[in-house]
Design a protein around this nucleic acid. Structure first.
Lengths: 245, 245
DNA sequence: CGCGAGCTTGATGCCGATCAATGCATGTGG
DNA sequence: CCACATGCATTGATCGGCATCAAGCTCGCG
């Protein structure tokens, strides 16, 4: 039984995991060419998300995961009374929407911090295919597990670090992920506001700003608005590990 | 090459998901009797963990997940410099070890807070079986996703709530989970110390103790050491939602 | 050019950390 | 059975880091 092809507009360029330059960072890690071709048939559509728009909102029905192809996102949860917490920042090759699997509804908002593009991964098809391809299954499980481990790291940060330690840890994490993607490990442009950084780190925007200024005074960073140059990464690392013990 | 059978003592009573009274809370949710029998062949061993002992440590090789059968656990991560953060408390029917999938090593410690018993779920066999049983696959994915959502909730708590709000949220979460397991929603015995609660909530033990006393003074709780009686759950709930806006 | 969003910087105050003493339950050995 | 030790909890006094409040500042953009 051949399925009717879905009436969806295909992007003009070919969408294919098999020749995507992010395949070593994304869902296809560890898959053979043959397997990749089967994944291609699943991930056939991209979606463009302009800066400021939401990819999905908390409460919406869940149907697909999304892989960031280009751009930058934040995810944030909110409590009844309107408190907001940024739970993460996602860049190329990272998956969005894992929170929706448990209840079939998204539980957070995903907002593009710059004009972005995502690959759409229909979730039930992914489940079906990962029952056939154990390498795909394994990689998907690893991605979920690492998200849990990452969250535990954020808890450690929020529960036991001081303001400057939090910002240092945040910056090192960002530069490391950017370096993995071939960018300079010392030069970066923040895509988010001081307020969003603060929300992620459990701080107010003024505190974030002061910490940036302090780092600049101490010669660890060069800060010009959102342009950041890391001058002394080891010193930042020393801050993250306990300098106060 | 037949492997030597591992020298593991099988518990005298029959271990079977199919007739486990926790099957509606645990991995088997949503599975048919036939499917359950296949799961039984996988989950055949239990392990007893005395109070204070670790089920696993960060850094150890990962091989199995564990389902809490009886008892109570905490999980905690530590940074290089020795800072510790309790990342969760697990009770009957909840899974331990999901953090290990991503790197094939555990990334946190799991410690029994009372004499406990867990079912051992060999992970690779679980992967194999979940490729055959889509209901098992679905439930496993839901469990991982819900863990991520739970972690996001903890981040919200750590990032934006005040001390008393955190404790109120913690107590309501505990009572709710106990109620799901058939216990009273108003009477509970804490299995963890003030210090462990504090670590989980990002507070010092003195602050936790003061918050308990405050709740008692205000008539929300009756506190006698670790014996807690909830007198006014709605008031606790009101604290969690923003009373200060 | 002037507006506005976002950022910086200063002054002040409060919440929770820290330091310290006491209380209370459990266990152990004389 | 009592004396004492130990681990955990409570309570008070003080301190400090970050939030809060309040101006200015910078830069991009209509």
């Amino acid at each position: 039984m051949t399925a009717v092809p879905p009436p969806i507009r295909i992007e003009p360029f070919k969408v294919a995991c098999s020749n995507c330059n992010l395949r070593e960072l994304c869902l296809p890690v560890g898959m053979s060419n043959e397997q990749l071709e089967r994944l291609d048939s699943l991930v056939a559509i991209r979606r463009t998300v302009p800066r400021g728009d939401a990819l999905f909102h908390a409460g919406e029905a869940f149907g697909s995961l999304f892989a960031v192809r280009t751009g930058f996102f934040k995810t944030c949860v909110a409590s009844e009374d309107g408190r907001e917490q940024v739970t993460g920042f996602q860049m190329a090759g990272e998956l969005l929407g894992l929170d929706g699997i448990g209840t079939d509804r998204h539980t957070c908002d995903a907002v593009a911090l710059e004009d972005s593009q995502v690959c759409i991964i229909p979730y039930h098809q992914l489940e079906d295919l990962s029952r056939e391809l154990s390498d795909l299954q394994r990689q998907f499980h690893k991605i979920m597990s690492r998200e849990i481990v990452r969250d535990h790291g954020v808890m450690l940060l929020l529960g036991s670090m001081r303001a400057e330690e939090r910002l240092a840890a945040f910056l090192l994490n960002l530069t490391q992920r950017l370096a993995t993607r071939g960018f300079s490990g010392s030069e970066l442009v923040l895509r988010m506001t001081r307020e969003e950084i603060g929300s992620y780190l459990g701080l107010k925007l003024e505190t974030v700003s002061r910490a940036f200024s302090k780092f600049q005074d101490d010669g660890l960073l060069e800060v010009r608005q959102r342009q950041i140059r890391v001058l002394d990464a080891p010193a930042l690392q020393a801050l993250v590990n306990g300098p106060h013990c």
